[in-house]
């Protein structure tokens, strides 16, 4: 249906254009207007430049203001507030330059349209002007970069010691989540250990992995630092948590990390937005194949007490599936079994 409409539209457009073309070609031959420069068409184009300027400005401001709440995603992390602020400061600066330069561009186009009686002024250079418009952008950019750099330095600084660790592993086409358990240390992993029962390749001969547990969603406490340890098991992926202003590639063979402090629980955000179904989400932003567009995981931000309660209720890998430790040497196996019994 759409196809037919589009096809008809194109045919109509083409035939209209063809007729316009023939008619204007004949008229211009009859008039002999091709020699003149200050023609009506020159004037029309000059006016259209102004129309474009004014129309474009109105459309831009109207839509930007009307839709603001729609495209401005709510922010729920400490550093996100800072980067958002940087974003809007940069927007103000560039927006001003954008409007100013466009006014000059189109106004000059209109103002200095061809006139047979006039002559352009011969104005080949002015070093003072060049120096000014080299230095001014340089200074403005330096300020913007410097504030950006300070934020970047803080964001990428090592995570605080007490940050809650969550491992996120990307694969085609989903994320696997692993928590380090009570010791807050993730057990080792090796991609060669991956199989149907151990999809993350966790090395259970490492004692730190005994209390590691899986989760269906990322549950994190509000107001406390959280460290995402990110890896991939097949191709590149990228962890994107839009409300946290968080993005980091997941690279096979090279673990990456990103830490942040969530500032609003899911419940608080739901109340704020008046949307009972709101969830924080994780998406993939590095093209990874057929299912790239569907790698969704939910992040649930809860109050710290609730978080601790949730953690204590989780069952570790070896509790869920004691087979995982069946191949371990006897001393390690004993330790692991003690661990299982303790947590019961």
């Amino acid at each position: 249906m759409y196809g037919l409409l589009i096809a008809i539209g194109i045919v109509l457009l083409l035939s209209v254009l063809w007729m316009v073309y023939r008619i204007q070609a004949l008229i211009s031959v009859a008039k002999g207007s091709s020699k003149k420069i200050a023609t009506t068409s020159n004037k029309v184009n000059a006016i259209l430049l102004m129309v474009f300027l004014i129309g474009g400005c109105i459309l831009m401001f109207w839509y930007s203001i009307k839709e603001f709440d729609n495209y401005q995603l709510p922010v729920a992390s400490e550093h996100g507030v800072i980067t958002d602020q940087l974003f809007w400061v940069t927007m103000a600066v560039t927006g001003f330059i954008f409007v100013l330069t466009h006014i000059l561009l189109f106004w000059f186009g209109y103002r200095y349209q061809y006139d047979d009686n006039k002559r352009a002024s011969y104005y080949p250079d002015n070093n003072k002007l060049e120096v000014i418009w080299t230095l001014v952008p340089a200074v403005v950019l330096t300020v913007l970069v410097f504030t950006g750099w300070r934020a970047w330095k803080d964001i990428t600084a090592p995570a605080p010691e007490d940050a809650h660790v969550v491992e996120i592993m990307g694969y085609q086409f989903a994320w696997e989540i692993r928590y380090p358990g009570k010791d807050n240390i993730l057990g080792d992993y090796d991609y060669r250990l991956i199989n149907a029962t151990n999809s993350r390749g966790v090395d259970f001969s490492d004692k730190n992995s005994f209390d590691d547990f899986p989760a269906q969603q990322v549950v994190i406490p509000k107001g406390e630092p959280v460290l995402f340890k990110i890896r991939a098991r097949d191709v590149l992926h990228s962890v994107f948590a839009p409300h946290m202003r968080l993005k980091m590639d997941a690279v096979p063979g090279m673990p990456t990390r990103f830490w942040f402090v969530p500032t609003k629980t899911t419940t608080e955000m739901r109340a704020e937005l008046g949307d009972d179904e709101f969830e924080y989400e994780i998406a993939c932003t590095e093209v990874c194949g057929r299912g790239h567009f569907s790698m969704r995981r939910v992040i649930t931000v809860v109050e710290p007490e609730e978080y601790r309660k949730w953690v204590s209720e989780q069952e570790s890998f070896i509790q869920r599936n004691p087979d995982l430790i069946s191949d371990l040497p006897s001393d390690l196996k004993e330790l692991a079994e003690i661990h299982i019994n303790e947590s019961k």
């Binding site: 184009n45 330069t101 186009g109 200095y112 061809y114 352009a120 060049e130 080299t134």
Partner: peptide
């Protein structure tokens, strides 16, 4: 890049423009 843009704008300024 900014310098280039300003130079284009100044070239248009007080020109005799044929569109």
């Amino acid at each position: 890049s900014a310098v280039k843009v300003f130079n284009y704008l100044t070239t248009l300024w007080r020109g005799n423009l044929r569109f």
